[in-house]
Design a protein around this nucleic acid. Structure first.
Lengths: 101, 101
DNA sequence: GTTATATATGAATAAATGTTTATATATTCA
DNA sequence: TGAATATATAAACATTTATTCATATATAAC
């Protein structure tokens, strides 16, 4: 029985990130940020038809975890992807056949 | 503002799968099943130093969700990956720099 | 200054998840 | 048959997560 190839630290980190993005709203946010480099809270809120507060909570959550970053411009705060690798994760799921799920 | 490229159904499915595997023990299991085609509950339990019951719960959980499948051979039940795409997800995280996490 | 708009924050709470413990079931072997 | 081993199940529980609501803060425009 061969060992896995990931050490414990790496397993923890991978799980941490996957858990951090494994939510419909957050996947929606990341998907939107894939096509648009930057989006304001309101942009996302309108686009995904989700409450401002809920979107804000989730954005801050992902920012706190190092997945997103943000900058202020006037009244708006624009979020963008920081951990670009999550795109690869989503892209590789996008291509596969998910009929059964 | 361009739309994202995933429809709602797909967003839900991707989130469903990422959430289903986004846990240290489950990533450990998948990592082990990446290197070993099949493993029994006990194999995994020993390898990851986790309780039989906890491992069983998690294996059944992922089986129920279509990520794993299993077969019985005598007293043992061998689990293996069904949704191979999850390997790609883990592999693409494996390569990226996760120093900050 | 006041008002309007955008975002953040915090409390409250429901719902989901992770974990342990004890027990049940299935299979093998003596 | 009974004992031993492997796995599943189910209850109980603590912890975490998702969501809403109300309110606070920051900036801009007047």
């Amino acid at each position: 029985m061969k060992p896995g190839t990931l050490d414990i630290k790496k397993v923890e980190k991978v799980a941490f990130i996957l858990k951090a993005i494994g939510n419909p709203l957050r996947i929606g946010i990341i998907d939107a940020l894939r096509v648009n480099d930057e989006l304001s809270v309101n942009d996302i809120s309108r686009r995904l038809q989700a409450e401002q507060s809920l979107v804000s909570h989730n954005l801050l959550n992902m920012k706190l975890k190092g997945i997103l970053e943000s900058r202020r411009e006037g009244k708006n705060i624009y979020y963008r992807l920081k951990l670009k690798e999550v795109l690869k994760v989503i892209e590789c799921m996008e291509n596969c056949n998910l009929e059964d799920f």
